[in-house]
Amino acid sequence: MASLDPLRRLAMEQARSRVLAVGAAVSLAWLVLVGLFALFGPEGEGQGAAGWLTWLVGVILPLALVWLAVWSARSLLSLRLEAEELRAMLARMQGEGVTAETMAEPRPAASAPLPAARRGAVPPAPRVAADARQASLALDSPPTTELTPAELFHALNFPDGPEDREAIRCLRLALADPGMARLIRAAQDVVTLLAGQGVYMDELAVPEADPVLWRRFAEGARGEAVAELAVIRDEAALASAGAMLHGDEVFRDVAHHFLRHFDRLMSRKVQDSDPQLLAALAETRSGRAFILLAQATGMLGRAGAEADGSQGAGG
């Protein structure tokens, strides 16, 4: 993974050095002022131990505040550099993904009938098998270095901010794999578009579901057979997601693209993982978006008009 331009990194390091130099200069100036005051100021006869203690605190406290500010500024610059590297990496991966998906998926609208396409079993949707070019891209192949369950959880949950170093590390590992990178980008797009309509994944209550049901779902069960996985009861969120699926063609394509890739991940993981992992992945921000959209499209037995239309097209 390429990092930022060396010139930008050098500029950031120079900025951190300047902060250090400013802190040293301010400290030196303060000590000079203290020395002048001690030499030419009024004599402190009879101050006693309390007076000297107060004087010492008055000298040291400003120095402590100066170096606390220096440390904070240098840490902030480091976090900003890391955040810019992550944004640059995501932008590069998005650019590569657009090119690859243009080659491999020339008709994204044809993927709308998702529930019927996956009703059979674990293998990907038939259109994937019919397109020989997709096989060469290895969209569904596992990463060269498989992520641990904890790393996969953090990557799908996204970092909470620049200070969430562990999640950033896991996200970088996930983006190094082309298949996972497509899933991560699709999840980010869905979460961002939903947030634009006031639907936030952190605010969705997702009660714990039976891991056995997630195994059943990953093995191909759909509709009423896994209806107990439809645990989101936020009617406003469900209505917003349904309205976006019906009225926004761009969101509909992005949503089905995301559903397809998350479904493939679950199908792949069910073959070599404990069902508890599947249940844990469903609790991430990406997993909550998946449950919300799966309910809105009828994959979990809560069929609406969108699901009916998808099943009719798939039949």
Results as ranks from 00 to 15, higher is better:
residue 73 A to F: 07
residue 73 A to V: 07
residue 73 A to R: 13
residue 74 R to D: 01
residue 74 R to L: 03
residue 74 R to K: 13
residue 74 R to S: 03
residue 74 R to H: 04
residue 74 R to A: 06
residue 74 R to E: 02
residue 75 S to T: 11
residue 75 S to V: 03
residue 76 L to N: 13
residue 76 L to G: 14
residue 76 L to R: 15
residue 76 L to F: 11
residue 77 L to A: 12
residue 77 L to I: 13
residue 78 S to G: 12
residue 78 S to L: 11
residue 78 S to P: 00
residue 78 S to F: 06
residue 79 L to D: 09
residue 79 L to H: 14
residue 80 R to N: 08
residue 80 R to A: 13
residue 80 R to V: 03
residue 80 R to G: 03
residue 80 R to I: 05
residue 80 R to Q: 13
residue 81 L to D: 05
residue 81 L to N: 04
residue 81 L to M: 12
residue 81 L to E: 15
residue 82 E to M: 09
residue 82 E to A: 15
residue 82 E to V: 06
residue 82 E to P: 00
residue 83 A to R: 15
residue 83 A to W: 14
residue 83 A to T: 07
residue 84 E to P: 00
residue 85 E to C: 00
residue 85 E to D: 12
residue 86 L to H: 07
residue 86 L to W: 02
residue 86 L to T: 08
residue 87 R to T: 08
residue 87 R to K: 14
residue 87 R to F: 03
residue 87 R to E: 14
residue 88 A to P: 01
residue 88 A to G: 11
residue 88 A to T: 03
residue 89 M to K: 04
residue 89 M to V: 01
residue 89 M to W: 07
residue 91 A to E: 15
residue 91 A to L: 11
residue 91 A to G: 06
residue 91 A to V: 01
residue 91 A to D: 10
residue 91 A to H: 12
residue 92 R to K: 13
residue 92 R to W: 06
residue 92 R to G: 09
residue 92 R to H: 12
residue 92 R to Y: 05
residue 92 R to D: 03
residue 93 M to F: 02
residue 93 M to T: 11
residue 93 M to S: 05
residue 94 Q to K: 11
residue 94 Q to L: 08
residue 95 G to H: 05
residue 95 G to L: 07
residue 96 E to T: 00
residue 97 G to M: 12
residue 97 G to W: 04
residue 97 G to Q: 12
residue 97 G to Y: 00
residue 98 V to Q: 13
residue 98 V to L: 10
residue 98 V to G: 01
residue 99 T to G: 05
residue 99 T to D: 12
residue 99 T to I: 11
residue 100 A to K: 04
residue 101 E to L: 11
residue 101 E to I: 04
residue 101 E to F: 02
residue 102 T to G: 09
residue 103 M to F: 06
residue 103 M to H: 04
residue 103 M to K: 04
residue 103 M to T: 09
residue 103 M to D: 14
residue 104 A to I: 04
residue 104 A to Y: 02
residue 104 A to K: 00
residue 104 A to W: 03
residue 104 A to V: 04
residue 104 A to S: 12
residue 105 E to D: 13
residue 105 E to P: 03
residue 105 E to G: 00
residue 106 P to W: 05
residue 106 P to F: 04
residue 107 R to W: 11
residue 107 R to L: 08
residue 107 R to V: 15
residue 107 R to G: 01
residue 108 P to S: 09
residue 108 P to V: 06
residue 108 P to M: 07
residue 109 A to Q: 13
residue 109 A to D: 10
residue 109 A to H: 08
residue 109 A to P: 02
residue 109 A to N: 06
residue 110 A to H: 05
residue 110 A to D: 08
residue 110 A to F: 07
residue 110 A to M: 07
residue 110 A to L: 11
residue 110 A to R: 10
residue 110 A to W: 05
residue 111 S to D: 04
residue 111 S to V: 01
residue 111 S to W: 00
residue 111 S to R: 09
residue 112 A to M: 09
residue 112 A to T: 01
residue 112 A to V: 04
residue 113 P to M: 08
residue 113 P to F: 01
residue 113 P to K: 06
residue 113 P to H: 08
residue 113 P to D: 01
residue 113 P to T: 01
residue 113 P to L: 05
